[in-house]
Amino acid sequence: MRIFGLLTVLLCGGLLIYHTADFPAWGDPASPASTHLSPYYIEHSIDDTMVPNLVTAVLADYRSYDTMFETVVVFAAGIACFFLLRAAKSKTPESMLYRHIPTGITLRIEKGSKTPPDSADFERIDSVWVPYDLIIKITCRLLVPFIQLFALYVVAHGHHSPGGGFQGGVIFGAALILFALTHNLSNSLKRINEKTSALFAASGVLVYAGTGILCLLLGANFLDYSALAPLLGGDPKMAHSHGILIVEIGVAIAVMAVMVWIYYNLASRGRHDEGL
């Protein structure tokens, strides 16, 4: 099997390398890829959409239909993980661990026994992740808000600098996952529960598709933002710019929520009680 695999790989690789001979040289400004379509994007997008970041302009305007489906892919992945993994209801485990926060003592409570009062002093912890690390917890607590702020900046400033909905959404999601990692799952579920994340994911897609439909209702083609001009004020070109911002926000919401949602399902094997 090993030999066979190696042979196949070498054969394929050899063929692939052989035909690179006909490729245009790397970085050649005269290659067809950089002379056919891209000059149009580069030279016109600022006039068409008022967005200096060409990648954003192409992503969310010229090829916005791709991007909409990309958001749908993300959403579908979230649903798929939920559909595959989510267990119907969680069984009560054999024993639960609680920590008394002021003293740091860990209590094991067998099934059926009395649970500690639901107060700020006691905290339920995972049975597999017992160590308690103050430094990590506090550091991440400090970091998370700044990461989130940075994520918002990346989303909002995607027109002028590298960034945009996906990147911002991923950073935001990563911040929430960092929180879930350093605390535990039940803690982060308390802040953003499953329903919220699912709702956010759906609404993110809906913002995108809704923008498209709104354009349609206003008499233009699907996702033609210039139709939004009367609603947003300003000329059609600025409307393109604002339209891009709106869909980027939709993308960011969807990506953020789906990241968190997938993490919940993967980390706890769909049981949503404890994990990592």
């Binding site: 010229y62 916005s64 233009a220 083609n221 699907f222 996702l223 933002y225």
Partner: peptide, 13 residues
Amino acid sequence: QYRLGGWAPPFGI
């Protein structure tokens, strides 16, 4: 042909 986003084909979808 339906132009999504109102861009002409080679540039839009």
